[in-house]
Design a protein around this nucleic acid. Structure first.
Lengths: 188, 188
DNA sequence: TATAGTGATGGCAGTAACTGACATCATGAC
DNA sequence: GTCATGATGTCAGTTACTGCCATCACTATA
């Protein structure tokens, strides 16, 4: 006889997504989520450091993917192109789960707390990209600034991708944003 | 006879800064802060929405200053120059209180929760700057991207300013970052 | 086959952030 | 002199999160 159903973490994520979507993040308690997943509150906090983290457990994988892409880019690639291409590559990953991404973003946009968590994940991403650039020999302040600019590009592209009524390609939007950045930054 | 000492909000801020600095944010309770300020916990939460907000009460004034500067910039000014000049102007404001800024940043850097709050304030700033640009007739996606890029410039400049051993001029660092951005973004 | 872990969970008590409802009382308007 | 107001206090309650110990199917090893 099996003592526990498998994949408790996955059940917690699913329960949280449903409840956050139905009632909003603020009006959902960890007790509710745990009960719906057939677990206790204590177990929820063994899997996730806090009530918000349940929506961000995939962030580390994304970060690793981006960092690897930057580190392994051809030596001739410029910093901004290295990070942009990494973002384009990651875009394909989101593309497969657009419905999920839209729903998740709707939940996040409905809660300031969740937005804060999203922002610190993106800031961590910026720092990791800057580190990856330094591994490529890029010096300060270029590395740090390029990392931050990469996030600026990603944020605006992702926002457009999620809110656009017609299905669009996230990678393409990233590429467009880089072009746009070049226009913006061009000296008069 | 005066019923209460004046400036309770200011006393709470001062008490919080000292305690956060001495023991760190996490190991400081709202009860401690309130007691040190000669007030109760309940009163703390009447002045600040939460334990973190006590370090960010000046953010709104900064945002208004930046937005006004952008809105009132000469019509010929490009979007990126409008926001950059606004940041340069705000730089002077910080310059007068460098010691305070350094201490405050040290506290923030010591706590993930405080970093999250700082990031959402900056994100709000990016959105407000984008709005200001739209008032100037700037269209999407330029407005949103320029707002985000402005924050990227500010973050990296401010970080350099705070960590530099020799006293430097924040406004100058902002200008340098814009130049740097132009190099980064330039197509090969 | 017996024994000794091991790992994922439950139970429970405790801390601290935050909220709502109501009481108090100096101050200032009339 | 009365009365409204606003800043504060008091207190009870909810909920996020933590530490500690117990449980017990499963596994490796003697």
């Amino acid at each position: 006889m099996v003592r526990w159903e498998p994949d408790s973490r996955g059940r917690l994520v699913q329960a949280a997504m449903i409840l956050y979507g139905e009632q909003g993040f603020d009006r959902t308690t960890v007790a509710e989520i745990s009960e719906r997943a057939g677990l206790t509150e204590r177990t929820f906090f063994r899997h996730f450091t806090d009530k918000r983290e349940v929506l961000f457990f995939g962030a580390q994988a994304l970060q690793e993917l981006l960092v690897n892409t930057v580190v392994n880019a051809p030596a001739s690639t410029t910093p901004i192109e290295a990070v942009t291409r990494a973002l384009e590559g990651a875009g394909a990953l989101f593309g497969e789960r657009r419905e999920y991404s839209v729903q998740r973003q709707r939940i996040i946009n409905g809660s300031a707390e969740l937005q804060e968590r999203e922002l610190i994940k993106l800031a961590s991403l910026a720092a990791a990209l800057a580190d990856a650039l330094r591994q490529r020999g890029v010096t300060e302040p270029t590395a740090a600034l390029t990392g931050e600019v990469a996030i600026a590009i990603f944020k605006t592209s992702f926002e457009r991708w999620v809110t656009s009524s017609q299905p669009s390609d996230l990678g393409q939007l990233v590429r467009d944003s880089l072009d746009q950045l070049r226009v913006i930054a061009a000296a008069t």
